[in-house]
Amino acid sequence: MFNYLIDSAGALLGPVEFFVTPGIGIQLPSNAVELAYELPTPEQGRTWALVNNVPREVIDRRGLVYRKEGGAQQIWSELGELPESFTAEPWPGDYYVWADNAWKLDEAARLSDLKNKVLAKRDVLLREAVLRIAPLQYAEDIGDAAHDEQLALMEWKLYSVELNRMEQQVGFPSEINWPVVPGSSAKQ
């Protein structure tokens, strides 16, 4: 006789040996079953379980699974096929959607997000430029700007115009040629 434990999902584990209690014999725990034969090793992705008190090889998708809507991870603990809303195929990451039984890159979503990030950075840089331009422009407006202040004002205005025209660059938003901040030699 061969003894198998039944796990919380109903899968048979074993065979296992139990101690013989003198005068009583082998006592099976409540989560065990005794079979007249040893079960063969199941195929990959399958396990043995009792179905109507008969050992049957069943599909075993337990473990890490992914929601087809959004790719969220979840631990699956039941025997049998996964529900239609899950897959065992690992989610590759952001911008991937489930289509035609596979994860596919949603290039439009990736580019849209990239565009939003680039424009947000551009807007921060434009706000910083406005803070630099304002006092220089005030000095120019009242006729009190020194020659180096007039040059700095022109550089900051040109920088702002280049930032504002960023969307017209050929590789936008994937390839950005950030303008050089006035007074520095490093690119953004």
Rank of each mutant, 00 (worst) to 15 (best):
A145E: 00
R132W: 12
L136Q: 11
S85H: 11
A120K: 10
K117V: 07
K115A: 13
E107V: 03
S112A: 13
G71R: 01
I59S: 05
Q150A: 06
E107G: 05
L50K: 03
V130G: 12
A72Y: 14
A72M: 14
P92A: 04
L111N: 06
L50I: 02
V54L: 14
S77A: 10
G71E: 06
R61G: 02
Q74F: 11
Y66D: 11
I133E: 14
Q150P: 10
V54M: 10
E57G: 05
A146H: 15
D113K: 14
I59E: 12
E69I: 03
N53I: 00
Q74W: 07
E140L: 12
A146I: 01
D123Q: 09
L114M: 11
D94W: 15
D144T: 09
A145C: 04
A49M: 07
R56C: 11
A49Q: 05
I59T: 12
L153I: 00
N116M: 15
V118R: 12
A49C: 06
Q150D: 01
L105W: 06
E78G: 00
S85Q: 15
Q73C: 11
L119N: 05
I133H: 08
V65T: 02
G70Q: 08
E84I: 12
E89M: 14
I133T: 06
E57K: 13
E128W: 05
G70K: 10
G143W: 03
D141Y: 07
Y96T: 02
G70C: 09
Y96R: 02
E140Y: 13
S112T: 13
W76I: 00
T87D: 15
E78C: 07
A146T: 14
E84K: 14
A72P: 07
L79P: 01
A145G: 06
L125S: 07
Y66V: 00
L82S: 02
A120I: 12
L151P: 02
Y138W: 15
S112P: 04
S77E: 10
L131A: 15
P135V: 01
G71M: 01
A129P: 02
D94A: 10
A120W: 07
G93E: 08
K121R: 13
K115D: 15
G93F: 10
Y138T: 12
E78Y: 12
G71T: 00
R62M: 01
D94I: 02
N101V: 04
L64M: 10
D106R: 12
V97I: 09
E155F: 07
L111H: 07
L82P: 01
A120H: 09
S112N: 13
L131D: 09
A109K: 15
D148C: 09
V51A: 08
K121Q: 15
A99P: 09
G143K: 09
V124F: 14
W76M: 02
Q73R: 10
Y96H: 10
A49L: 08
V118A: 02
K117N: 13
E149A: 10
E78T: 11
A129W: 05
K157V: 01
L111S: 08
K115M: 03
K157D: 02
D113I: 03
V51N: 04
I142Y: 09
W103S: 08
P83Y: 00
I59F: 03
A134N: 11
V118Q: 09
N116H: 14
A145I: 00
E140K: 13
L105R: 03
L82G: 03
R67E: 15
S77N: 13
R110G: 04
